[in-house]
Amino acid sequence: MRTDHIVRSFAQELQRLANLVTQMGGVAEAQVDAAVKAVARRDVGLAAQVMQADQRIDAYERDIDAETIRLLALRQPLAQDLREIVSALKISSDLERIGDYASNIAKRSLALAQVPVVRPAVAIPRMGKLVEQIMKDVLDAYTERDVAKAIAAWERDEDLDDLYTSLFREVLTYMMEDPRNITPCTHLLFMAKNLERIGDHATNIAETIHFLVVGAPLRGERPKSDGSSFAVVSPESDDKGAGHAA
């Protein structure tokens, strides 16, 4: 009977740990959504809330760190139980970084709200929507232990990279057309990069879910198509004096 009690108690502790990760994921997801809305609405009040709420995500990470250390020391878990604990630790680290990037986007939106609107800004909510969908899918996959859903989200990172590359080229063109666009476009580039990095951390979580459920790393090369490193924008002499994305 005592052994059964210990097993039940450990299962409950693992479930509490998983619940902490799920709660942290919900906060991170809300932070990304709010940060993108702050950009789209030029809402400095909402941006400030996002920056202040980053402390909640940090607190979750500290709690998960403490709980995983306690469980490892007291329970000496093996196999699936060990993967549950290690995965919680890895996922919380990715979620903490996602919270940092959301805070960075909010911080940039404060500066962006002080300058005239530039057309490429509409691409940020579009990127944000895709990032939020990927995050939702990986967090649902974690709750449901659904490997297929995790892999599907992992594969969508390529779509996010395509959006980022397209925005990168458009923003460079705008900066060449008018020096007054340099300041807002620079902030947009950093925001877009932050969203792209959030997508990378979401795919990290998808890979961790695969390890958690299957017990082996996800095979195959991560789908990446970020072409921004190779983007070249050359001035084109025409009647409008517009730039041309190469």
Rank of each mutant, 00 (worst) to 15 (best):
residue 143 T to S: 10
residue 148 A to V: 12
residue 145 R to V: 10
residue 157 D to S: 06
residue 146 D to E: 09
residue 141 A to H: 10
residue 151 I to P: 04
residue 148 A to Q: 15
residue 138 V to K: 06
residue 153 A to P: 05
residue 134 I to W: 03
residue 146 D to Q: 12
residue 151 I to M: 12
residue 158 E to C: 08
residue 140 D to A: 13
residue 131 V to Q: 02
residue 143 T to I: 11
residue 157 D to I: 08
residue 156 R to A: 12
residue 139 L to M: 14
residue 148 A to S: 12
residue 147 V to T: 14
residue 158 E to P: 04
residue 128 G to H: 00
residue 157 D to N: 12
residue 152 A to R: 10
residue 134 I to H: 00
residue 143 T to H: 11
residue 153 A to V: 06
residue 132 E to T: 04
residue 131 V to K: 01
residue 146 D to L: 06
residue 139 L to Y: 02
residue 145 R to H: 15
residue 156 R to P: 03
residue 129 K to T: 08
residue 141 A to M: 09
residue 162 D to S: 05
residue 163 L to V: 00
residue 158 E to M: 08
residue 163 L to E: 01
residue 140 D to S: 15
residue 159 D to M: 10
residue 158 E to Q: 15
residue 156 R to M: 12
residue 162 D to L: 09
residue 161 D to T: 02
residue 144 E to T: 14
residue 146 D to F: 02
residue 151 I to A: 09
residue 154 W to A: 03
residue 128 G to L: 00
residue 162 D to R: 11
residue 129 K to E: 04
residue 134 I to V: 13
residue 133 Q to H: 09
residue 154 W to R: 06
residue 135 M to P: 03
residue 138 V to Y: 03
residue 157 D to P: 08
residue 159 D to G: 05
residue 163 L to Y: 01
residue 162 D to K: 13
residue 150 A to R: 04
